[in-house]
Amino acid sequence: MADRRFRFGLMAGGARDGAAWADLARRAEDLGYATLLTPDTTGTADPVASLAAAAGATESLRVGTFVLSAATRPAAMVAWQAASLAFATGDRFELGIGAGRPGGEADAELFGVPYGTAAERVRRVEAVMDAVAHPPEGLFAGTGRPPRVLVAASRRRMLELGARRAGTVAFGVPPLTGDKELAPLVGIVRDAAGDRFDDVELCTQVHVVGDEVPGWLAPQLGVDGAAMAAAGSIAMLTGTPREMAGTLARRRDELGVSYVSVPSVFAEEFAPVVELLAGR
C-alpha cells in the first residue's frame, strides 16, 4: 500500500459573523488542520464567499467544499466558481463534489432547477469534473491549474467514478458503519482505480470525539453514543489522544484511510491527535 500521510480537515458550517469565521480559520491553521471545509446548504453561507474569506485570513490553510452539490448548479458554473476560488486562494482550494444530499430536493426547488434522478445527478458530477479539468472556451480559468477534486460517494457508481477520476474519495456512510462495512467500499475503489489506487486519497468523517453524542448532533445522526460504540463506528473516536491516533493509524494501515474530517466543535479536543499524526 502507498505511503499515505495523514491530513485532517475541520468541518464548519459558519460562525457568528465574518470576524468569528476568520478567527476560526486562523485557529484551524494554528492547530495544524490541513483544510477548513464547509457544506453546501441553503441554510449556510455560499461556500464561494466563506471559503475565500477563510483563505484570506490565513497563510497556508487549504479550504474546500464538503461537498458542493452538482444537482443544483450547471457544470460550467461550478467550473467558474472553482477557478475563481483557486485564483482567490492562491491554489489553496479543493473542490468537493457530490450528487446531492438528503433533502436536496428542497434546495433544487428553492433555486428553481430540476433535481433529477440518481443517474442524472451522477452524470452531472461527471460533467462538472469535465468542465473543471477543461473549462469551456471563454470561461475564466483562474490560475490555469485545476483544483484537487474530492468525490463524496456511498454507492458503487459514484465510488467508481471517484476512483477513476478524483484525487480524493470520501466515503459517505451511515453513522453505525464500522471497519468491516467500510472494507468492501474500499475494495470497490481499489478495483475501479486500478494502477492509480495508490494515488487516490481515502477520506472518512469523524462526527463524535468522546463517549457521548452532543445533544444538538443526536437528531442528525439518529443514534446515541452507546450504539456507535457497540458498532465500532468509524464516525466516533474515544479514549486518549494517543489511543485515538492508534485507531486511525491502524485504519490507515488496514484500509488506506489517511484524510479525516472532524466537526469544528471538536477542534480543540481533537487537536492533540492532529499533532500526533498530521503529515506522518
Rank of each mutant, 00 (worst) to 15 (best):
R7E: 15
D17Q: 04
G18D: 14
A20P: 02
A34F: 14
L36F: 12
P39S: 07
D40Q: 05
T44H: 06
D46E: 10
S50L: 13
A54M: 06
G56N: 11
A57W: 10
E59H: 13
A70D: 07
A70Q: 07
T72D: 07
P74Y: 06
Q81K: 07
Q81R: 14
A82V: 00
A86P: 00
G90C: 08
D91I: 03
G96L: 09
G104F: 06
A106E: 04
V113E: 14
P114G: 04
A118Y: 13
V122E: 06
V125Y: 15
A127C: 00
D130C: 11
A133L: 12
P136T: 01
E137I: 02
G138A: 11
A141C: 02
G144P: 06
P146D: 10
R148E: 08
V149I: 15
L150C: 09
A153P: 02
L159V: 04
E160A: 15
L161Q: 01
L161V: 01
G167P: 05
G167F: 11
T168K: 04
A170Q: 01
P174T: 05
P175H: 01
A193M: 09
F197N: 03
D198E: 12
D199F: 10
Q205L: 10
V213Q: 13
Q220A: 03
D224F: 00
A226D: 14
A227H: 02
A230M: 02
A231W: 15
T240C: 08
E243K: 04
G246F: 10
R252G: 03
D253P: 07
G256H: 03
S258N: 05
F266W: 14
E268R: 13
E269R: 06
L276S: 02
A278F: 03
